[in-house]
Design a protein around this nucleic acid. Structure first.
Length: 644
RNA sequence: GCGCCCGUAGCUCAAUUGGAUAGAGUGGCAGACUUCGAAUCUGAAGGUUGGAGGUUCGAGUCCUCCCGGGCGCGCCA
């Protein structure tokens, strides 16, 4: 039969793509040949099988194709099966139900696919930040593009609080994943470093020195206190308020003294942010800050260009596709946006057209203006092809208007993707946005302190309950602290990433620090457990080269095959995060991987395997799992530890 | 009033974007450590996917209408 002809032929090209992509391409050409030219492009609808009973993957194209071809779905499925060549990858295909095509990968294929993963580079494990040393042999994409990711974006003169947590953590995952895939990533920290609040601070400090304490964090805390005092004076002291307003003008016109004060405020703030970023173990650093002030000189030209490009239309010209026009309204310069039918695309509470204001009636610019200037800069000067904004969901309307205006003005053409990746709020136990008991924002540094403290308590508690473990008895106070630091920060980050970013989530220390369930500690434990096997193996058998040519992955046991199948799906999981920007799918993958490993570990003895060949093969599976966990967690911004 | 998001097991959440019998964790129940790390694993139990219609081979997912919740709606960001 046909399936035998190419059996066993495994092309080297395979390792460059995910299984999903390879199957997708093979099925796509088969589907195209069955469909003929009449139907246009058709999705081959290849996806992992929902139920292991139905195999490993399935192709669902036959059902939808049947209607277009006016044929029976199962017949179409049969024609697709006849046309597709998968003999080197899969067992003979099966047609089930209304026309599902079930694909079961050949175990030999899984073994060979995994067998092509090269050994880890000598310098592995990966450094704390920067690209990972060990890519598991995964190549970069063929067509990289430049991506700007706008994330974190705290305000100068204020300490970072829990409101900045999600943007910082989520945005960083995108930076890591896209960088890993080979794209050029430009991180942009759009800090709030411009505006009327600086007038108050400049006037408040006068010729006094801006606070600079032993740590930048303390200095920023002092500045924030001063800012509150200045705000109060602004409200109660008329003379101070007038002077503060004049100070804004001095700053904008480049007055040396005003500038000095502003710069030292910004400097202290950015240093303090940098400390938080370092603690949070994100890639973002001080050099990525490109704040609102950067665009100051570009705001007026941007508005001028809008005037030029968005001229109001005559009544007769309307109704031919969405458009925008710029006109004055109530003294403010506004962009009005219209849909295909020439009706207002956005309306206010009275049902009247809702504009996007780009210049206030007093002549000042707003954040919409700055956003437009930044977008124009990032496309025209940085050359961005994809722009990702990581902000909370409440800004959705703003971004819809802002993107529409940018398209209408012609700054963002079809070749540029604009994506607003929203996220929900962090809630307290009362289901209201998380605050301190006194109703203030929870400071990030205090939150991280508590994470480390709680992780330490959990660690000590666990150690007390378990005796006879040499790893635990040996470790001193410093090591415990170091472990608690890693676990605590990881727990906070993972708890944030594990949920669909669009929904709100309730912040809960106990569940994020729990060692069971889909948590960072569980994942890190799985890694540490594998590393422990390696240490034991080294004692008993020396340090065998599990990547030596003679070592084979037999995958005879069901748990071995399940684990192997999971491992080969890593690449397609990364691809999907890069495309859909949903980090929780990677979390779910890693949890499944860790679970599969635990099952394998329970049922397949490694160090006590029946023979050396089996032992080495299983050790290799262990190592591949450890490396996948390490890389996967790295992509999530989480560093593993060798013992915990 | 209009718009966006959401409602899934007692609780916290998934569900490969329209695919097959809706899955995990947690809690409770029943088991497994003289055995590679029990921070683990294995069972069983738990559901009218807020409700009612509709679209089609097929709906938690899409369309309409209700119920309930969150957020947003012109000179803040």
């Amino acid at each position: 039969m046909r399936a035998r002809k190419t059996a066993g032929r495994f092309t080297g090209a395979m390792k460059h793509d995910s299984i999903s992509k390879t199957l997708g391409e093979r099925f796509a050409s088969a589907v195209a040949s069955v469909a003929g030219d009449a139907c246009g492009p058709i999705d081959s609808q290849v996806r992992p099988a929902g139920d292991p009973k139905h195999g490993d993957y399935q192709c669902n194209a036959a059902m939808s194709l049947a209607r277009r071809l006016k044929a029976k779905p199962r017949e179409i499925a049969q024609r697709i099966v006849d046309a597709v060549d998968l003999a080197d990858i899969a067992e003979p295909l099966e047609i089930a139900g209304p026309g599902f095509i079930n694909v079961r990968l050949r175990t030999e294929f899984l073994a060979r696919y995994l067998g092509e993963v090269p050994p880890p580079p000598a310098a592995s494990p990966a450094p704390v930040s920067g690209p990972p040393m060990d890519r598991l042999g995964m190549p970069t994409v063929d067509a990289p593009y430049k991506t700007v990711i706008d994330y974190s974006s705290p305000n100068i003169a204020k300490q970072m609080h829990v409101g900045h947590l999600r943007s910082t953590i989520i945005g960083d995952v995108f930076a890591r994943v896209l960088m890993f895939e080979g794209h050029e990533v430009v991180r942009q920290n759009h800090v709030g470093d411009w505006g009327t609040q600086f007038g108050m601070l400049i006037e408040h400090y006068g010729d006094k020195a801006v606070p600079s304490h032993r740590t930048h964090a303390d200095a920023l805390a002092a500045i924030e206190d001063d800012y509150r005092v200045a705000q109060e004076r602004f409200g109660s002291d008329e003379a101070f308020a007038d002077a503060a307003r004049l100070a804004v003008g001095r700053l904008q016109s480049g007055d040396v003294e005003a500038r000095r004060v502003w710069e030292s405020i910004c400097g202290e703030s950015r240093h303090a942010f940098g400390e938080i970023y370092k603690r949070l173990d994100v890639l973002l650093e001080e050099a990525d800050a490109c704040g609102e002030s950067f665009y100051n000189d570009r705001l007026a030209p941007v508005v001028d260009e809008l005037v030029e490009r968005l001229r109001p239309r005559e009544a007769g010209q309307r109704g031919s596709g969405p458009y925008a026009e710029l006109r004055e309204d109530g003294g403010a310069l506004c962009v009005f946006l219209y849909d295909e039918k020439g009706e207002a695309a956005f309306t206010n509470q009275d049902g009247d057209p809702l504009p996007m204001i780009v210049r206030k009636s007093d002549g000042a610019f707003l954040y919409a203006t700055t956003d437009l200037a930044a977008l124009r800069y990032r496309i025209k000067e940085l050359g961005a092809r994809r722009m990702i904004y990581v902000t909370d969901a409440r800004q959705k309307l703003h971004f819809r208007m802002f993107f529409a205006a940018a398209r209408a003005a012609g700054w963002a053409g079809d070749e540029v993707a604009l994506e607003h990746t929203t996220f929900g709020s962090v809630l307290g136990a009362n289901r209201k946005p998380l605050k301190t008991r006194t109703g203030k924002n929870v400071l990030l540094r205090e939150l991280l302190d508590e994470a480390e403290r709680r992780a330490y308590d959990v660690l000590v508690e666990r150690d007390r309950g378990i005796e006879g473990s040499r790893d635990r008895e040996e470790r001193d106070e410093d090591e415990k602290r170091a472990i608690a630091r890693r676990v605590g920060i990881a727990a906070v980050k993972y708890a944030d990433l594990v949920r669909d970013r669009n929904s709100d989530y309730v912040f809960n220390w106990d569940s994020m620090l729990a060692m069971q369930g889909n948590t960072a500690p569980y994942m890190m434990y799985a890694y540490a457990r594998i590393r422990s096997i390696y240490r034991k193996a080294a004692e008993r058998f020396g340090s065998p080269d599990v990547y030596a040519a003679g070592v084979v992955l037999s995958l005879g046991a069901p748990a071995e095959r399940d684990l192997a199948l999971r491992l080969v799906r890593f690449r397609e999981t990364i691809d999907s995060v890069a495309a859909d920007l949903l980090p929780h799918t990677l979390c779910n993958y890693l949890f499944e991987l860790a679970s599969d490993f635990m099952r394998f570990y329970e049922s397949c003895p490694v160090l006590q395997a029946p023979d050396e060949a089996t032992r080495l093969g299983r050790m290799r599976l262990c190592d591949l799992t450890a490396r996948t966990l390490r890389l996967g967690l790295w992509l999530l911004g989480i560093e593993v530890i060798e013992r915990m």
